[in-house]
Write a protein that binds this DNA or RNA. Structure first.
Length: 497
DNA sequence: GTAGGGTTAG
């Protein structure tokens, strides 16, 4: 059956937690209204600057404004965040401020821009910035390397990621257990588990692999649904004298659910309880979500009630799990009941909570109510994010209400949220369904806009739009797109406007 | 940003 020595009753920890909860029920779990007073007060200077940067026509105004601005690392970081989905402009802004006579960039701003360069696959600029950090003696830090490595991995260049890790010390940043674990985690999260495990086996002695290292690898195997491999790794961990933690158990538990091994998941959960392992709010949330996804709503609800009875208060993610599965496998109306209940209890729904509800409503075709919830988000100081907009835009497109999708897109651009690659892909595809010449013009404009913002449209998208424009007699515009495409082909990652 | 629990369509 289950690996027996994985289960060592951890009664000391368990008793400590229970006692703590009984003595200070408020301290750990009482949801608090978030206080925005200190994050918001230094005016919305970042918004103003980001707007000036995005409006091409007011260059002199921008320069003038920047000269008068009292720059701080925090302000620069916030502006960079606002320009997240407008990579080229963000880099330009960073370089512009770098010439400021009395302001010097912080390591954190460097990290942001390095991340953006990595996303744009402009590796030359990325490494130049890393070297510049060396020169200025503000880095690079382990965090900088985590960023670089993650960008290589997500671009499918795992080998370069590993090489980067091995070269860290040449930049004055020695590898340690933390950075080792980070690399393993990044490889695992991108499903390169075999590679991570191979690397782990070679270096585990040198870096003195710890519980975290083993958990990371086990989680990797779970992500690709190989729970038996995960169990093997954990056996090995125990043999080496490392104690499993509550995270270890939670990783396996989630792994069983993800691999649709519902029976094993349930048995494992029972064993955890029986053997006195620590059961925390993450454990309960995992079980609620797991059963819900498997369509066992009643069981999910039962566990939710059980955790409360056990004195383990749900957190916002717990509610998100329950609300999410109610939307998907039960009824949005029931999900909304739970939503209202959580609000009544004083929890503050976060963006995910709203997105889950909004998706549920869209799925049922209740677009008006979905938009109501979006309005409610704003009232709740919980601004809709790209995903929120993408959900609504996608559903408007799917139901053929292209005008409304475009209207939402406009609102998004006028607000403080920039579209991402998904937004453009969804909208551009929608421009082909009505077979209208005007729609193709919009598609063309969207294409140019996304290129300008540093996103990479697929060859297919280019060709589709070109064909469309030629068929509808827009030779002129087609030529313009063709010009962009050819420049784009020659200068893949650094297309300049 | 050293591990585990909420959003991705069919």
């Amino acid at each position: 059956m289950f690996t027996h020595h994985l289960f060592k009753p951890n009664s000391i920890i368990k008793n400590y937690v229970i006692n703590h909860l009984l003595q200070h029920p408020q301290s750990l779990f009482t949801p608090k209204r978030s206080c925005n007073c200190y994050t918001q007060t230094p005016s919305q200077e970042d918004t103003i600057i980001a707007e000036l940067i995005l409006k091409n026509n007011s260059k002199t105004q921008l320069v003038e404004h920047c000269r008068r601005t009292q720059w701080s690392p925090d302000l620069v970081d916030r502006v960079l965040k606002r320009l997240w989905n407008h990579g080229p402009k963000a880099i330009e802004f960073f370089k512009f401020i770098d010439r400021h006579p009395s302001y010097a960039h912080s390591g954190s701003s460097f990290d942001h821009v390095i991340d953006i360069c990595g996303r744009l696959r402009d590796y030359k600029t990325m490494w130049d910035l890393v070297k510049e950090m060396c020169k200025r003696r503000i880095g690079p830090t382990p965090k900088t390397f985590a960023i670089v490595i993650e960008r290589f991995i997500s671009a499918g260049k795992s080998d370069r990621a590993v090489k980067t890790f091995l070269a860290m010390h040449e930049y004055g940043c020695p590898q340690d257990l933390c950075s080792f674990n980070t690399l393993l985690d990044l490889l695992c999260k991108s499903k390169r588990v075999e590679m991570a495990y191979g690397f782990f086996k070679v270096f585990r002695r040198r870096f003195r692999a710890d519980t975290v290292s083993y958990n990371v690898i086990a989680n990797g195997w779970c992500l690709i649904k190989k729970t038996s491999k995960a169990l093997e790794v954990l056996e090995e961990m125990v043999e080496r004298g490392l104690e499993p933690t509550v995270s270890t158990y939670n990783i396996l538990l989630k792994g069983f659910f993800q691999a649709s091994q519902i029976k094993q998941a349930w048995d494992f959960f029972l064993q955890m309880k029986k053997r006195g392992c620590e059961i925390d709010v993450v454990t309960y949330t995992t079980v609620i979500h797991g059963f819900g996804v498997a369509g066992e709503i009643d069981k999910a609800k039962k566990i939710f009630n059980e955790m409360i009875k056990q004195g383990c208060l749900p957190t916002v993610p717990t509610y998100n799990a329950l609300i999410g599965v109610l939307c998907k496998k039960d009824d949005v109306e029931n999900a909304i009941v739970v939503f209202e209940e959580m609000v009544r209890k004083g929890y503050v729904p976060n963006t995910t909570t709203y997105n889950v509800i909004i998706r549920g409503l869209c799925h049922r075709g209740e677009m008006d109510r979905a938009l109501d919830f979006m309005g409610r988000m704003k009232d709740d100081e919980c601004e809709p994010n790209v995903q929120t907009y993408n959900i609504v835009i996608r559903y408007f497109c799917d139901t053929g209400e292209i005008e409304k999708a475009l209207e939402v897109f406009e609102n998004m651009c006028n607000g403080e949220c920039l579209p991402n690659l998904d937004t453009y892909n969804v909208l551009i595809s929608a421009m082909f369904v009505r077979k209208k010449a005007d729609d193709l013009l919009v598609a063309g404009r969207l294409l140019l806009e996304m290129v300008e913002r540093g996103f990479t449209p697929r060859e297919f998208t280019f060709n589709r739009i070109l064909n469309g424009l030629l068929v509808t007699g827009n030779q002129g515009f087609a030529k313009e797109i063709l010009r962009v495409q050819s420049q784009y082909g020659k200068l893949p990652r650094k297309f300049k406007l």
